[in-house]
C-alpha cells in the first residue's frame, strides 16, 4: 500500500497554486503537510483525490493511476476529511454510514452495519450513535468526520486541518485516534496542519510546502530551525521536553527578497 504523487500541478485560473509536486508515502505512517496560509496545502489534498482536477501530474495508489478510476472506485480507495464541518439534522450513526456510500448497492447490508459499528468503536463514538450531529461539539464533529472517512475503508486517508477549532484535550484525543487508526489499519495518512508541535510529536513523514512547491520532504530530521525560518519566516528553537520535540517560536523574520 503506497501513495505516489508525480509532477502534480494545479492552477486557479491563471494563478498557479501547485507546481511539480512529487513525493512517495509509505503505509502505516502519518505524513504532515506544513506551510504558511496560501501555500497550497488544502489544494494539494483536494487535487490528490480529484475533488479538484489537476492540470498535470499523476497520483498512484498501490501503483494504480487514480485518474483511471471512476469516482465510486476512488471513494473506496481514498477517504477525505474536509477543513470545516458543520452538523446537520441526521444521527451520528447515519453520518458515519454515509462513508459506505461508494460500497452501498440497492440498500445497506450487514457488512455496512458491521463496519460502521467497528469504526465507531475505534473512534469512541458509540455513546453518541443516535445523537443528531447538529447538537455535537466541534471535537465530536471532527471525530464523526474521521469516522466517516474510515468507514470508506480507504487505503489513503486525507485530513485537512483536523485539529482546527479544538481545545487542547480534544486535539490530543483526535490526533491519537488518527495515529492509532493509521498504524492499526496500515493506511497512508496525510494530514494538513498548522500545529508544528503536534506534527513533530505524531508525524512520521513531513512535507514542507512553500509557494505551491515542495520545499523539503522526509522524516523528522528535515524540521530544523533553518527550514522553519525559510518556510514560515519564523525564528524558532526546537528543543526536547519529556522526550518529545517542542518548537518554540521566538520572532518573525522578514522574507528573503524574491521569496
Amino acid at each position: 500500500m503506497s501513495l505516489d504523487v508525480r509532477g502534480l500541478a494545479y492552477a486557479y485560473g491563471r494563478h498557479q497554486v501547485l507546481t511539480d509536486i512529487a513525493f512517495s508515502l509509505p503505509p502505516a505512517a502519518l505524513t504532515c503537510v506544513l506551510g504558511v496560509n496560501g501555500s497550497g496545502k488544502s489544494t494539494l489534498l483536494k487535487t490528490i483525490n480529484r475533488i479538484l482536477r489537476p492540470a498535470a501530474g499523476t497520483v498512484l495508489v498501490d501503483g494504480t493511476d487514480i485518474a483511471r478510476c471512476g469516482r465510486r472506485e476512488l471513494a473506496r480507495r481514498m477517504g477525505y476529511m474536509p477543513q470545516q464541518t458543520r452538523g446537520i439534522r441526521t444521527t451520528v450513526y447515519d453520518a458515519v454510514m454515509l462513508g459506505r456510500r461508494a460500497h452501498i448497492g440497492w440498500d445497506l447490508c450487514a457488512t455496512d452495519h458491521e463496519i460502521v459499528r467497528r469504526v465507531m468503536r475505534t473512534i469512541h463514538l458509540e455513546h453518541l450513535a443516535l445523537r443528531h450531529t447538529d447538537t455535537l461539539s466541534g471535537g465530536e464533529l471532527q471525530k464523526v468526520a474521521i469516522a466517516r472517512a474510515l468507514a470508506q475503508e480507504p487505503r489513503v486517508l486525507l485530513l485537512d486541518e483536523p485539529l482546527n477549532h479544538l481545545d487542547v484535550v480534544n486535539q490530543l484525543e483526535v490526533i491519537r485516534l488518527i495515529h492509532r487508526a493509521t498504524l492499526e489499519l496500515e493506511i497512508v495518512s496525510v494530514m494538513v496542519t498548522h500545529d508544528l508541535n503536534s506534527a513533530l510529536r505524531w508525524g512520521d513523514r513531513f512535507i514542507l510546502l512553500k509557494n505551491g512547491a515542495v520545499h523539503a520532504y522526509g522524516d523528522r530530521s528535515i524540521i530544523t530551525p533553518a527550514a522553519v525560518r525559510e518556510v514560515f519566516h519564523l525564528e524558532v528553537v526546537i528543543d526536547e521536553v519529556a522526550g518529545m520535540p517542542v518548537v518554540v517560536p521566538l520572532d518573525t523574520v522578514a522574507p528573503a527578497a524574491g521569496a
Binding site: 471513494a75 474536509p82 464541518t85
Partner: peptide
Amino acid sequence: WDYNALLWGDDTARSLG
C-alpha cells in the same frame, strides 16, 4: 444517499464518490 452526502458540502460529497 447522494443528497445525504451533498448536505455535508460539495467537497465531502465528491470525496464520497
